[in-house]
Amino acid sequence: MQKITRIVLVDDDQDLCDLLKMELEASGRFQVTASSQSGSALALIKTERPDLAILDINMPEIHGVELATTLAQDPQTAGIPILYLTGMVSPEEVNQLGGGHSLQTLVSKQSPITELVAAIDNLVSP
């Protein structure tokens, strides 16, 4: 029996939250808590302590990278792998983000879901 991966997903579009929650949970391998309220994302991740956080980057209340940095600085949440899911397309945009976190991956919203699932597996597998 495979362990169920607990994921917190933060994206400011509720439709995207609904879609990914449905898609990921349909596989039976993930349990997703999705929120479109980026402002309360930090608190949500601290309470949930998920196995992985999927973050949008351009959000109205908090920038995804800023959120990840805050998480990395807190010993309680520092170990949570981060997967950025972004609509950014140009390499310049992506390069601007910089590093700072070893357990992080970036997946484009243009990619099929299978690619997202592969990236998740890559981050959480021992």
Binding site: D11, P60, L85, T86, Q110, I113
Partner: peptide, 24 residues
């Protein structure tokens, strides 16, 4: 720009490629 960016990402993920491209 931000609004278009958000709709773009979601549209792509839903498979609305043309809509996502228009937003881009």
């Amino acid at each position: 720009k931000k609004q278009a960016h958000t709709v773009k990402g979601t549209s792509w993920m839903y498979g609305f490629t043309h809509l996502g491209d228009l937003c881009l």
